[in-house]
Amino acid sequence: MPILNNLMQQLVNGLALGSIYALIALGYTMVYGIIGMINFAYGEIFMFGAYAGLVLALTNYVNVYVALLGATFITMVLGVVIERVAYRPLRRSSRLSALISAIGVSFFLSSLMVRVKGPNTRGFPTLFENRIFEIGDFQITIYQIVIIGVAGLLMLSLHLFVTYSKMGRAMRACAQDQDAASLMGVNIDRVISVTFAIGSGLAGAAGVLAGIYFNAVQPYMGLLAGLKAFAAAVLGGIGSIPGAMIGGLVIGLTEILGVTVNLSEYKDAFAFAILILVLLFKPSGIMGRKANKKV
């Protein structure tokens, strides 16, 4: 029974961690779905979101929701600006150019943050008091509830937005065939900007949540988180929104599972081992569709 309880406890830890990965993974998957490009700067946008949340929280005038919304807004703008400056001029050139540009942006953002805020890990201020809820032996902290809750809410809204709104329909149209969508009167540039804004906003929100949950913010936090989120997106099937959510949760859970079975030094390797395994048997990822060749 204690073992079972322990496992439940670890499941919640994994769920909280996985929610953060899932939010970043959504950005990767949405952009890939629409312009077929991997935006490697998402990890750094996540980091920027965490710092934006930190700066807002340190002003002492805002509560957790304002910090979350503020950071989301700031990273949305950042995402749109990055797309304008670094990716749009390269849209018609080879995919490799855009990829290299993305790596450049990623280095630029983390170096910029080292310059502005210093390389040290910064603590995150307490935005709300911790509470522990106990159900028998099982317990869950308010932080975990908030992380899982907010992440779930954001993912649900994204799903509704993409499925039912006009812009969502335009996005799906662009994902299928940009030229055809353009001929039907869809403003491609606008759709891409909105995609970047939403993806970046989610990463920014994830940054604040990570800051609250880990109590720590540092300029290079985006590197590994971004890499794992990318793995999550590929694992779930890149281009698929539900796939990114599932991928993120799987990566988070495997990581915690690695710690649970006393292999914590391999916890990062676990995530990628799972990725390789899934891709061996299902190259398109868990939720990915087989790529249809356009004739």
């Binding site: 406890q9 961690l17 880990f214 720590a216 540092q218 936090m221 990581e255 710690v259 649970t260 916890k267």
Partner: peptide, 15 residues
């Protein structure tokens, strides 16, 4: 066991 620069310790702390 942890690693320097890790930020998530929830698994270890639960144990």
């Amino acid at each position: 066991f942890i690693q320097d620069k890790d930020t998530d310790f929830s698994g270890q702390i639960t144990k």
